[in-house]
Design a protein around this nucleic acid. Structure first.
Lengths: 190, 190
DNA sequence: TCTAAATATTTTATACATAAATTATCTGCG
DNA sequence: CGCAGATAATTTATGTATAAAATATTTAGA
């Protein structure tokens, strides 16, 4: 296949696509390009968030989810929405609590759980960052005409649906992982 | 705008797109979808690499770049192609060296630099992983018909070109950062 | 010829990210 | 009613990732 102008241009700068051979399947090419585009945009956003607001992308993303849900989200729900592990959410939340931007609010019906909410300070701070963030994204993705952006959005939507359909066929769960053995009470860690 | 079937489906599972409002610009929607798709695929690949080969995606990617360049790549070149910092490359290379999968080869013309190459063991190991990896990618991206994959690839190519064009207009560099002050010889760290 | 500036890589301090284990609490069923 | 199993969040050990500084070496220009 003879590459088109954008394809030739798209392969000029060394990046993840640099490892491709002639023989590689088109799905691998698509994957590496997807990843490359994501990293290019992400890198730009991280740099600017740090430079202008002294914060990080994971913290910003967590606050964004909370802004959309003013009554708070549980740690587990944050984990799902941010697509990271619960342990990671704990650490990022700790940082934002220390900065006074979010708070953990106990849930009376379930003493294991918390609702994480933005504080007033957090809301103000998030609004400032969100305005700038959306502007940066518009700048970067504005490189593509609107009609192509919409087409891209639709195609990625179809891809995402396909990926999620595959995920919703989980392997059978191993029931009764800990058979027979009784869990003894333990002293708290030092 | 009334969402289409794939759009509705694409927004069913909670993820990064969950934070979107009606008022958010379409570029932000596109960005969050791009990121979501990338994370879905990446997560799957990481899990399988760990489970079947006891390795990590960054190590695999580094080996992939070396496979494409049998005479080796310098640390700085690896940094560019993998789109991460030099410090990160040092750490990942250390791990692969310890596993006997790559080696640093001195470059006679430049005693500061090394060429990083796959060892024989590394080549064999990489070939096994690469075969499986390409298969996983084909499975996942095979959810999209070939014509749509090609269209997606082309659109992302245009996006990537636009992003790279913006990056090649850097701000003026601060020449002579350390003016006047003489750098004194220092003892090596303990 | 000499040295300031630049380059290549590593080190340091810190943040994010994971899987697995741990702890506290809740639920459903015998 | 009691408890095994499940759930929610945290902790632990480890890997990745960054910016900035440090170190060794090379280069270009005065």
């Amino acid at each position: 296949m003879t590459p088109r102008d954008s394809d030739t241009l798209a392969r000029g700068v060394p990046d993840l696509e640099s490892r491709l051979h002639e023989t590689h399947h088109e799905t691998l090419r698509l994957w590496l390009r997807l990843l490359t585009c994501t990293l290019l945009i992400e890198s730009n956003v991280r740099t600017r968030l740090r430079g202008q607001f002294k914060t990080t992308l994971p913290r910003f993303d967590l606050m964004a989810q909370l802004e959309r849900n003013p009554r708070g989200l549980r740690m587990g729900e944050l984990s799902r929405r941010l697509m990271v592990t619960g342990g990671n959410i704990t650490g990022i939340t700790d940082q934002l609590v220390a900065e006074g931007l979010v708070e953990r609010q106990p849930i009376p019906e379930d003493r294991r759980a918390y609702a994480v909410c933005l504080t007033s300070k957090g809301k103000r701070q998030f609004d400032l960052m969100a305005q700038a963030h959306e502007q940066w994204i518009e700048e970067m993705l504005g490189a593509l005409p609107a009609v192509e952006r919409r087409r891209l959005h639709g195609l990625l939507g179809r891809l995402k649906s396909g990926l999620n359909e595959r995920k919703s066929e989980p392997p059978p769960r191993s029931a009764r992982k800990r058979v027979v053995e009784r869990r003894l009470p333990r002293e708290k860690h030092a």
